[in-house]
Design a binder for these strands. Structure first.
Length: 150
DNA sequence: GCCAACGTTGGC
DNA sequence: GCCAACGTTGGC
């Protein structure tokens, strides 16, 4: 089993939204590296840190689980969607997604600020300067380390 | 194939 | 709202 971190702006889709909906198709990823992680790396049952970005208190707020294999993101074909990609063809979809299932909320937010203070987490892409990946792998050691902070 | 312009992300 | 970082686009 692998571990991941996925970012979401809580104003757009928060951990509480996921809790309410149970499962969500993770649409709108339009970055090739992030897509490749979903398409090639993720398997059902993998665990995911749910991260709130671009908000008052950025940080890890909960745990989710990959709930499907990757499949085409239908929003890329929807001309009315903000995720519409006129360059993508149905017979050769450019953007893929996975379903993500709610597991639990953390008792507290493990903030970005707090994570930055741990040398053991230096290698996380999340903490690397200038990195804006919205889907990234988390090492098993990092996963356990962060869980122990809760 | 280079690279300037532009758009987006996301912390602050 | 600002702006640094960085990916993408498009003219040449």
């Amino acid at each position: 089993m692998k571990y991941w971190l996925m970012k979401s702006e809580p104003e757009a889709f928060s951990i509480d939204d996921l809790k309410r909906k149970r499962t969500e198709a993770w649409d709108g990823v339009r970055n090739y590296q992030a897509r490749n992680f979903m398409r090639d790396g993720m398997r059902p049952g993998d665990k995911v840190f749910f991260y709130h970005s671009n908000c008052a208190e950025p940080g890890i707020v909960g745990i989710a689980e990959v709930a499907s294999e990757a499949y085409p993101d239908s929003s890329q074909f929807d001309a009315k969607s903000k995720y519409f990609d006129p360059g993508s063809k149905r017979e050769e979809p450019r953007w893929m997604l996975v379903d993500v299932k709610f597991v639990k909320k953390l008792k507290r937010t493990i903030t970005l600020d707090e994570l930055k203070g741990h040398d053991a987490l230096d290698e996380m892409p999340l903490l690397r300067k200038g990195n804006r990946l919205s889907v990234m792998p988390v090492a098993a050691t990092e996963w356990r380390y962060i869980l122990a902070l809760e």
